[in-house]
Design a binder for these strands. Structure first.
Lengths: 212, 212, 212, 212
DNA sequence: AATGAATGAGTATTCATTCAT
DNA sequence: CATGAATGAATACTCATTCAT
């Protein structure tokens, strides 16, 4: 009876193993320079086996971000559910996103990749759809927080909530890329966490009602 | 003697022609997918001729950003030299950078590419050096503006000037990438210029002394 | 008792099912382009199961023609047994063969395949042997008819009976291939059956005693 | 001056070398089983070089038959131009075609390949067009001969000239394939030329006016 | 008897780069 | 200075075939 279940578990595990190896290789080299051979060697499976679990290199690549996107959404929900003040919630959301990206550095670049229209053509529809859903879910949650902040007179009300979300999102990604490039120190940033704290301070300061 | 000069001029022009063609091709396809064949065809020169002017595909790619970086620095200097109020100067600097990037979309992606340590290994030293010089020059100019703003009590003095510069730079790049991905509209941004104005407003608001 | 028989019957049926599916796929794509995956999917059996019944793709392919060759021989025997005049018997034999090939288009191409020495190396001996037996049986039957026709002064006696058989066989196959290529109409043949009747007329005319 | 010419000659020669090697390999193995690697090794050129002269494996394959088709048409024209009786002209045309095919065994199989609609999709248009032109030219010449034969009361007038051409063409190809399969001897044909003479006799006998 | 899972060995095609001229 | 011609090294993806169960 347990046999089918064990098989199922093993299959899922194998899938995760492949994703894990792919994550490493893609992180190190980027999409194009990475090769299926290298990934196969890293998982200690043959190339055809990989194709048993993923339809194409592009699908494998984007599946990584897909896995990640589950985690971000989860993490964000937690931050939003915490019982703290609004500003504290903002900080928590910011940190949740930022830490997730720092722990899963490929997430940012793959997401960027998925943004580009040329890439989208080559990715399986079901992956694209699921990824977009997560992204919009994420944007939606933050926008709710923005709306609440405006209602309570905390955030500036001269901009549409969605615009505020977008600005915050893009600014945060811009900040992250400095870290992900691996050359933060070169630009004088020794304590990246402190840098982020400061940046968040600038961001929240810019978003708050003047006078509040 | 005029002959030598003409030859020299022609040579430089040829170099610019190649860069121009490369810029188009790389812009459209990105680094890896673009081929030297395509670039050669576009300049109407043979492939070996291109190698007469540039040592490798990577060098050609980065040389484009190098050419751009001259222009940005120039543009920035102009903005900084203008005789207007400090906040106006900030806006002018922001817009100069932003507009340059929108007009030369490859600049952002190539700069990003040059940031990555793996890429740096494959680029000729002299290009790298020159590019880094320009970047630091650029950062330096902005930092001067920041320092002046702090001195005059305009900008917040709780952060080191360089940190402020970095935050502003990275946030701006993050905003730009939304445009460069070509999917801004999809995220509800119809008037990208308005979006940038709003974003600048948030940014400057965040950087100003509270109470000023 | 009954159980073993039923099992045996089921086994044979399964074999036939596989052959049937293979026939479809090979007919549509030819030998190399067809894949075992596609055949397996069509029979709704797993690939290893197919290998339980056939040793290799090549064996499966040739087994189809083998199955067909039973049918042709059967059909030919019937035609030969019919109680009609000699010329009518010739026509009947011709039509039997031609119709069989048109209904089982793979028969001609696979037979051709089996003829080629390189292919023969890769096919199991027992299949080869059986196929050759059938072919020679077939040739033998026709040769008997030829001999009878010569004896009765109908067919030309200036050629060995076997030569006449071979000429008739190869000419007929040549005619058939026009149909099997699917481009008969393109060559102005709208009514293929009429074309064959005419061709038979030419053939029999060429084989008859001058003056008869 | 002569330099450009010599280069041109060398280029053409290289093209011919490649075709020659391809001819060997394809003859031996057939289209699919043959590999570009093997062809490259045989010409002692690198694979990419082959792609400099031919766009794809399929194009290379069909170009062989294209080259051949020039020769057949040439040979046929000669036969038709010869100043002999009509029956002798028929024999000459038959032998010209048959000998060409025996000397260039790949011609028949590739032509067969080009006939199939699926293959046609993958071949470059210009090759297809040229090949079809040659084929129709060839059919046209023979049809003229048939018409002349009918007019002079030699050939049977109960069939359209084009039908007669098609029947003769297909029957001849059928006969040839026995030789090309390499197993003629096995079927008791020791002297293939004699066999062909006999076959031609049957064919012409079938096509002549009864009573003539 | 049947199969899910795995793989060795291909396979056509591409592309940055380099000589010989 | 410029290039036609050539190639080494990849590279994603495929498929007949085989185990372990």
């Amino acid at each position: 009876m347990g046999i089918a279940e064990r098989k199922e578990r093993e299959k899922l595990q194998r899938r995760r193993d492949i994703l894990e190896a792919a994550r490493n290789v893609f992180s190190e080299k980027g999409f194009q320079p990475a090769t299926m051979d290298e990934i196969a060697e890293k998982v200690e499976l043959s190339k055809p086996t990989i194709y048993l679990y993923f339809d194409s290199k592009e699908d494998l690549y984007t599946s990584i971000a897909l896995e990640d996107s589950y985690k971000v959404v989860e993490r964000l929900k937690e931050s939003l559910a915490s019982d703290v003040g609004l500003v504290e919630k903002w900080r928590s959301v910011f940190l949740a996103f930022v830490e997730h990206c720092m722990e899963n550095p490929e997430y940012v670049s793959i997401s960027q990749h998925i943004l580009a229209p040329e890439s989208r053509q080559r990715v399986s529809d079901h992956i694209l759809e699921e990824f977009d859903n997560h992204t919009h879910e994420l944007v939606g949650y933050v926008t709710q927080l923005v709306e609440e902040s405006i209602e309570k007179g905390l955030a500036r009300d001269d901009l549409p909530p969605r615009t505020i979300t977008l600005i915050a999102w893009r600014m945060t990604v811009g900040l992250l890329e400095l870290y992900l490039s691996g050359r933060a120190t070169e630009f004088g940033v020794d304590d990246y966490h402190e840098f982020l704290e400061n940046a968040f301070d600038v961001l929240i300061n810019g978003l708050l009602q003047r006078g509040s």
